[in-house]
Design a protein around this nucleic acid. Structure first.
Lengths: 126, 126
DNA sequence: GCCTATAGTGTCGAAAAGGATACCGTCATG
DNA sequence: CATGACGGTATCCTTTTCGACACTATAGGC
């Protein structure tokens, strides 16, 4: 998603849900946010915790999260560059969502093993 | 998102978060799910509650939600077709997530008014 | 002099998501 | 007979996303 269908949120009760989702959506954002719950991390630390993410993608996601005010970027004017990312107050407010997400995921992963996209076996079963 | 980066969820603590997000992602899924919290709805009822969604999109999202086991589709063999959608047990388990999402959205909408994409005015305000 | 690490940026192209539109069959209504 | 409601499908096309890869600058180690 990430694109809002109407750019207004006072239309129906689902809208604020959408608004919230639109901010934590993006292939890696939720993962980044989740890892930042543990505390401040440097660029490459996040990278290492999210196996498979490319620099470009990570940079992108971090920039968007920063623009949205969910994280804080702190650059140290050192020569081997050092940049630290941490949750902003607003981002920290996402904690219950992230935890609910994790709880549900943990509880339900066993039920389907993998999601839809890996439906090769599902097709065979169907 | 919707695409899983590794299709395995036992790799790191963020993975179950991803897994959960991947299921409720999709431009309209969260909205549909949210409205279904109120109870069973028919196709066009959902359509009316989600201003702007097209049949194709709605059908799509509903199918995916069904494949993922989050909702139940009940077709009545009537002549004016009647199809009812409701949350499955697993889908109902998403309630805390959806509510947390809504709470956060409600609490923070006032802070930025609109998300990033409509940032023309946000820039002016900033 | 070369390699490494740091935190990026730029460009390209494939793939996927999403929107618009038209169409289906059946029944009831006017 | 034409129209509308119902719950979709099929097709086309545009936009967005994402991954691969190359490139940057500087300092330190070998």
């Amino acid at each position: 998603m990430a694109k809002l269908p109407h750019s207004r949120f006072d239309c129906s009760p689902g809208c604020s849900v959408e608004a919230a989702i639109s901010l934590i959506d993006g292939k890696w954002k939720c993962v980044v946010l989740f890892h930042l719950l543990d505390g401040t991390l440097r660029f490459n630390e996040i990278r290492r915790r999210a196996p498979g993410v490319t620099q470009r993608m990570l940079t992108n996601q971090l920039r968007e999260l920063e623009e949205d005010g969910l994280i804080t970027r702190k650059v140290y004017a050192q020569v081997p560059p050092k940049v630290e990312y941490s949750l902003s107050d607003m981002g920290r407010g996402l904690t219950p969502i992230l935890l609910a997400l994790k709880d549900w995921g943990d509880a339900n992963i066993g039920l389907f093993g993998k999601p839809r996209q890996v439906s090769d076996t599902a097709e065979a079963a169907a």
